[in-house]
Design a protein around this nucleic acid. Structure first.
Lengths: 235, 235
DNA sequence: GTATTTAGTGGACGTTGTACACATTATCAA
DNA sequence: TTGATAATGTGTACAACGTCCACTAAATAC
């Protein structure tokens, strides 16, 4: 403390030498790792700062509070799910409109969804965890169109959205283009399909159907896919 | 302190005057109220003891730790769901085997399920919240038949189980008895049906489809029920 | 009536989220 | 270049939580 700014080469704490936004990104990445092994509740602010190598309060320069960090982590987890789905779809060959390809891509979407839920239960739970904003308040009285409601598509859905629902919509549209899904049944059908796959993912992932043996798990998947096929074919 | 046991009527802290098991039951009831308004994370041990009027450590005479209390609260929440479903089914008139009654009872089950998820989001989330045993461990390697696997029914499913899955099974059996569900399609069909309803309950309750307006919500319900009907009818 | 179990109290510790004051570096105007 | 201002990290502190330990009074068993 004698000199005003002495020996800068020794080891002056190396304060603030990280590139811009590195701490923020690091916190999200750390939170993602915590979420991967422990779900949303495991993303604890202090632990994340510890992993990044900063003091706990440093996080508050980048996030208003823990919930805002968690929100970023949730978004990252959702992105990872979307990426896996897109990768699975991309692996299916065949031009648009080809019935086999259309079927294959829809199947790939469902498979990727279930695989993610099974292989990364923590991230899956985190992706769908609402950051405790006010969590479970009064049933809500006419909330405006704030959050992702029925996925407000643009004028004509020009740019494809990578969200799970967006990818599902694309696959179902192709199924209709290929003549495998009656146009009169297309409208809104994405919700029952999504609900069915998501329901199985939740029930078998962290719900009452967790720890059913691997064989039965596969059987459940087949049951679900068959059920969806029947639902798409219609009565 | 002069007499060995003086003035018992004054105000000697009124220690231990509660009936047997009252504290335990009170803790679960308190936890249930906390869960009702805040979900599983809101069931905090100290707050529950405060509501019951005992010191925090008193809880440890009845539960090994917070997770064990939470487990009891989860079971209570699941019971409430089951009770609502049973009540809904009981409201539908008609003898066993009557097609209208069979359809009505299956519908009542789904309706009660969705209504519970919508009216009591905290309890619904709690009912399906696994108490953080080790939560999201390694994907599990051949776990034995410990937890509620595929709902091990007795020899011939003599006594009806009130669990949601049990009630759904009963309704589907009746549907088959009434000739509305092909016997060849009955086996295992409860899982896709459950998954579909549960998926919608989760997505619309605390998931990305929360805060869709009331009207669209009803439309979603109809879509789901129609989809299930088609799935039951088969291709 | 005494001994033993049961069920509550009191105090303490470590961890968490977060607020306030402070210090240092980056950015930009003069 | 210099000096103001914003951005970003540090330190200290506090309340609340889950949980541990020692102690004590009531209920029960012998």
């Amino acid at each position: 403390m004698t000199a005003s700014r002495p020996a800068k080469e020794t080891h002056q704490v190396e304060r603030r030498r990280r590139p811009r936004g590195a701490v923020r990104d690091g916190l999200v990445a750390a939170g993602l790792e915590l979420a991967r092994t422990g779900g949303p509740d495991a993303v604890v602010l202090r632990e994340a700062t510890r992993m990044v190598g900063v003091v706990p309060n440093a996080a508050y320069r980048h996030f208003a509070d823990r919930d805002e960090l968690l929100a970023a982590v949730c978004a990252a987890a959702m992105d990872e799910l979307a990426a896996r789905m897109a990768a699975g779809v991309a692996r299916v060959p065949g031009r648009h409109g080809d019935p086999d390809a259309a079927r294959g891509r829809l199947g790939a979407i469902g498979t990727a969804y279930l695989a993610f839920a099974r292989e990364e239960p923590g991230l899956f739970a985190t992706a769908f965890a609402l950051p405790h904003q006010h969590a479970y308040g009064i049933p809500d009285t006419a909330t405006g169109p704030d959050r992702t409601g029925p996925e407000s598509t643009g004028p004509e859905s020009t740019v494809q959205d990578r969200t799970p629902l967006g990818q599902l919509r694309t696959a179902l549209d192709e199924l209709a283009d290929a003549g495998l899904l009656d146009r009169s049944r297309r409208d809104g059908i994405e919700y029952p399909v999504w609900a069915t796959v998501h329901g199985l993912a939740v029930l078998a992932g962290s719900g009452p159907l967790r720890d059913v043996p691997e064989a039965a798990r596969h059987h459940l998947d087949e049951l679900i896919f068959g059920f969806i096929q029947d639902g798409l074919a219609g009565g």
